[in-house]
């Protein structure tokens, strides 16, 4: 039940932002659409709706955002440097790293964060292992690779999603 309520709220707020009007007919249609979608899709969309009411998670999400954008900007300058450099200093390959995160949501966000941060692209997730394409491999020791790629996000994502 909590899942459905939170899904309804998310869809309804999205609807309000997209239509950007508070006229009665827009709100009625929005309520109907949000209700329908939350009844039909509650099994496939959000799990663990109760987590949405724990304020600590939002706090850690706000801490995580600046860190995330810092790495996104660094990633862009990194790619720009490699692309514009006449000799293209790349040393690519696919490495295997291990994550301690358990929930699907946290893993999905970890994979997306890895893809948007410097030089790495998640190729696949199998159980606890992520296969990551790395444009410039600096070490061949799996332990160190995990340290470099995964650790900077794991702590925050665990506090947000688990």
């Amino acid at each position: 039940m909590a899942n459905r309520i939170f899904q309804f709220l998310i869809i309804f707020i999205l609807w309000l932002l997209l239509t950007w009007s508070l006229t009665v007919q827009e709100i009625i249609v929005g309520v109907v659409v949000a209700l329908l979608l939350s009844i039909l899709l509650s099994d496939v969309f959000v799990r663990g709706g109760g987590k949405f009411v724990q304020p600590a998670r939002y706090f850690w999400f706000l801490v995580y955002l600046p860190l995330f954008f810092y790495y996104v900007f660094r990633a862009n300058f990194d790619v720009a440097y490699r692309v514009l450099h006449p000799e293209m200093p790349i040393r690519p390959g696919i490495v295997k790293v291990r994550t301690t995160l358990k929930s699907d949501m946290a893993k999905a966000f970890l994979a997306n964060s890895i893809t948007l941060t410097p030089g790495t692209l998640t190729v696949d997730i199998v159980g606890d292992h992520l296969y990551v394409h790395w444009i410039n491999i600096v070490t061949e020791d799996p332990q160190e690779e995990t340290e470099v790629i995964v650790r900077k996000f794991e702590g925050y994502l665990r506090r947000i999603f688990e």
């Binding site: 040393r91 690519p92 390959g93 696919i94 296969y131 491999i137």
Partner: peptide, 10 residues
Amino acid sequence: LWEGSVMDKY
């Protein structure tokens, strides 16, 4: 992968 790639664990 490109022939200059170092490894392919996948």
